[in-house]
Design a protein around this nucleic acid. Structure first.
Lengths: 246, 246
DNA sequence: ATGATTTGTCTATTTGTCTATACAAATAAT
DNA sequence: ATTATTTGTATAGACAAATAGACAAATCAT
């Protein structure tokens, strides 16, 4: 097996982690099937041009994630190559988002109070340190988790928001309770990242998989930002469609 | 001052790199505008709960990427915010990039003739087996590879396309040569994948990193599809901005 | 049973990262 | 001019990461 992945020793990323991620990507991509044996540590060490102990650390990390299992004398095996929901034709992002703020299809999985850092303060156009409400929601379609959303609101403008949202299950409804009758989307910024551990668990996707990240800002009728949302969706389940007449 | 991004000291990722990525994300998001001054190193050090030297290393990395510029005695400034790529019905890469004071350049890295398979035939609304021109282009901004695009055209409608494109470096120009004066975007479908080996090399990113994938169809004035494009961009370099509703 | 292979453990050494402190050099404000 | 602020440079120590070598323990092939 050849080694296209070269290690970067000055990138601020530990070598064992680079090896870990390379192996993980290969397992995910199907280069090693579930139950199959990995090359022995010594072989991997030569392949990556690295000491055996460094490979061992990478393997240890993957073992603690449940991806590998090492048996003394036998070898190291792929324990669980999780897992993709092959849900046929891709769900359209717009279908979910169009119903997003109105139908109670979102599950509240957490909320918190926190102070605005530089990024949030800028997005919501408030001073640093302003108290914000953070809302974590999970969108599910046909029993399959689709999207995790984190929304921030300025606490002062929507004081009783969490309770209202919990009751109605609708952001629109909860905003109405706070006297905000209408709002519109300012813009959405779309990018993509590797999934974080917590999101991976919630979405039921493997670490090392990409997620689509959509950051959006909603404005009230006067143009003041009232909501900043960062949604993460499993990239292999969701496709975002932008029409020409936007 | 709080920071939502907490530092992980046992993840195999150097603290300076985590700080670097946090700052970069904040610059991209617009928390610091181009030309504006960053908080002094000592302030950032307190904010991240870290020694000043660690912040300095993060800043050094961003400086060598051309994102920051540090002046002794004055402060550290945002030199050039990473690129945003707003898409819409009439957006063309070169227009956007030139609008942001970056010099556009599309490099032809390959072309071929091939028959339409089921997917392409459907997208371009032609019979199976129709001869298509496939074009591989690499977009570069300020010397940094931004995006790889694969475009398919129906050969019969643009017979001399490859030569025309090679000469002008512009798809719009090459289409004009074929008598197509104007076109508009029908829709764009956005998703994300793990980068493929060839793309990784062209874009200069590591395997296992995510890419944004934008599939789009351009129509001529009569509504006939003339171009189907599948573009891949390094997710940490390009951000899609969509105005209005997604 | 024997030997080869493979993972597990241990110690030692070198290199990289982060902290701590101090001071120099350039700039800005007064 | 003087002072305060801010970036640049230097040194030293604590700790993590990576290398190196050696050996034990389990498994497999013969």
């Amino acid at each position: 097996m050849t080694n296209t992945t070269s290690l970067d020793r000055s990138a601020g990323i530990a070598v064992w982690r680079q090896i870990m991620e390379t192996l993980k990507a290969e397992i995910i991509s199907g280069a090693f099937e579930e139950g199959s044996r990995l090359p022995p540590e010594s072989t991997l060490a030569t392949r990556f041009g690295v000491n055996r102990h460094t490979v061992r650390r990478a393997i240890a990390a993957l073992t603690s994630e449940g991806i590998l299992r090492a048996d003394q004398g036998r070898g190291t095996f792929v324990a669980s190559a999780p897992l993709s929901y092959p849900i046929g034709p891709r769900t359209r992002f717009s279908e979910i988002v169009s119903g997003q703020d109105r139908s109670p299809s979102g599950r509240l999985i957490g909320s918190a109070l926190e102070e605005a850092d530089a990024l949030l303060a800028n997005q919501l156009d408030v001073p640093l340190g302003t108290m914000l409400i953070r809302l974590e929601t999970l969108r599910v379609a046909d029993g399959v988790p689709m999207m995790i959303g984190t929304s921030w609101f300025v606490q002062a403008t929507v004081p009783n928001f969490v309770a209202d949202y919990a009751e109605s299950g609708s952001i629109t409804e909860a905003l109405k309770q706070a006297g905000i009758e209408d709002y519109r989307r300012k813009e959405s910024r779309i990018t993509s990242e590797l999934v974080e551990a917590r999101d991976a668990q919630q979405l039921g996707i493997a670490l090392g998989q990409p997620v689509l990240v959509v950051e959006s800002i909603n404005l009230d009728t006067s143009g003041k930002p009232i909501q900043y949302t960062r949604a993460r969706a499993a990239a292999d389940r969701i496709q975002l469609v932008v029409n020409g007449n936007v």
